[in-house]
Structures are given as C-alpha cells and as structure tokens.
Nucleic acid binder design. Sequence first.
DNA 1: ATTCTGACA
DNA 2: TGTCAGGA
Length: 137
Amino acid sequence: MGDDIRRNMALFPIGIVMKLTDLTARQIRYYEQHELVIPARTGGNQRLYSFNDVERLLEIKDLIEKGVNIAGIKQVLLPVDKDSEDATVVSEQSEVKRRELTDSQLHKMLKQQLIGGGKRPNSVSLIQGELSRFFRK
DNA sequence: ATTCTGACA
DNA sequence: TGTCAGGA
C-alpha cells in the first residue's frame, strides 16, 4: 500500500488532534509519556500527528471509555516505536516479529472485541475479566 | 495565537 | 486530569 506513507505522514498539531479526538491536550500528552503514541516533532519541538496517530488516539480513547487503564492498553495496542511510526509500512496486519507475546492471537482478538464491535453491556465486564488476567501487576 | 514542560493550591 | 507558570 503506497498511501501508507500518507497515513504515517505527520500533519497536524495537537490543537487539531484535540478536536479530532475530543481528548484534552493533557490526555494526549499523557498517553505519549506512556508511549501509546509517538508523534513526530517540528524543529520547534511542536508535536505533529499523522492520521495513524489520530486513529491510534481514537482507539485509546475508546479503551479508556471502556474502563481499560494504561497498562491494559499497552498490551492491547501493539507497541509503537519511532520507526514504525512515520518511517514506513508496518501496521497491525504485518506479521510483526514480536515473539515476546506468546499469544499474539489473543491480543488480536481482544483488540477486535474492545475496539471493533459495538457495545454490548456484558462483553465489557467479560473483557475486563479476561484482561485482568494479564493486567495483574 | 499556539504549544511545551514541569508542577501541584 | 485540570490548570497555571514561564519560556519558545
């Protein structure tokens, strides 16, 4: 996919992202501290987000609303590193070589259930129950 | 006018 | 998380 570069192309400042995601600058920056999103920076140290970053933030917002905490989100969303951010292709679909996660399949499922699907009243508690098995510190 | 980091009445 | 300070 060639327009992947466009999705990973840093374009908008935090102000725009705030409106696009309905998140406060505080939250957006906070999530960055926890490496949930790594926006590019301008010469003036201003954050520049790509479409992928925004989508990512929307997913995070979704999970937060579903009661998932940072620790949990870190495990549901694949870790992002400066490379896969604005460099090249690499998205959730690519066969990431992360053996660290013995159950990448489960992660995929959880992600789908948490993000994709609409909102079933019970699935939430169900999911949280399953996740707690991982989030447990 | 905007955004950034650090800090906490 | 909100919000203010103080600088870029």
